[in-house]
Design a protein around this nucleic acid. Structure first.
Lengths: 143, 143
DNA sequence: ATAATAGTTGTAATAATTATAAGTTTGTAT
DNA sequence: ATACAAACTTATAATTATTACAACTATTAT
């Protein structure tokens, strides 16, 4: 279930995190743009609404949201940290050709082996890399 | 099956990659230290053997080895890229307390859902974060 | 042996992120 | 409403990881 903007505002209140203008805008952006944006993408887009916005604020806000568990960090690729509103168990596929990141459903829990039974697991990520169907067909056309 | 140093030398020859002194040392280090080292750890350790070693060379070598498929990049944590000799399907668990990265066996293929049937998958990673048993028991002792 | 190619090195440049300190905003108690 | 304290934001500077580059060295094939 994808959490709505209102759900998230509620969550923040419960966790005692101030609902500043900038924070709300970051959350709003993440709920409306489920494309796993980078800090830079978030910053550039929000700047249109908030001309005085500082990139440090975007970093600070994301750190707060990640610590509170509302947002997750996606490090599918070296050298580009991305952010995602936390939703159900799902994995990420990154197309090496067009760069798009696709979500896909996956039940990770069932495959965690017994050797880890004494480990406390706080976060689970499944990352795949490859080429998406769209790029595959484009490659074929250009043959 | 963990590839030996000799196996890897053979692989390089087959792939037509020069067996320079520095490259061999990097591979040797990775086979003997399966702790998923960072560039900095590799560099610092090899410097003892090769005083003239440059960090650029470590970066270059790792790029070459990753491109050839002999080494994989581990981006389990933001801001610290790690490297691993490619072995069988396995996942990585990082302890948030002591920082150790543990390998664990996992069969990812069986859980990739049908929606991805038209995607070409080149690389698969499962990353878990949490606390390892050793750190858990230390935390309990200090109560 | 020699030329051509590939690899290495040190330095400089770039890019992402964090630290810091001053200025603003917000919430609370009066 | 007002004033105070705490929290948040901002801009700049500092730090860190990585890449670009050009000169130098080693290696390979003829």
């Amino acid at each position: 279930m994808k959490p709505s903007f209102e759900d998230l505002k509620q969550e923040l209140k419960i966790k005692n995190i101030n609902l500043s203008h900038q924070r709300l805008k970051v959350i709003e952006f993440l709920t409306q743009n489920r494309c796993h944006p980078t800090v830079d993408q978030i910053f550039t887009n929000l700047q249109k609404d908030i001309p005085t916005l500082s990139k440090t604020t975007v970093y600070n806000t994301l750190r707060t949201l990640v610590a509170s568990g509302l947002v997750r960090v996606i490090t599918i690729e070296d050298k580009e940290t991305r952010y995602d509103i936390v939703t159900e168990n799902h994995g990420h596929f990154k197309c090496e050709s067009c760069g798009t990141i696709f979500d896909f459903p996956i039940g990770i829990d069932s495959m965690i082996p017994g050797v880890l039974s004494k480990f406390v697991i706080n976060d689970k990520n499944v990352y795949l890399n490859g080429v998406c169907p769209r790029c595959l067909s484009n490659l074929n056309e250009n043959k």
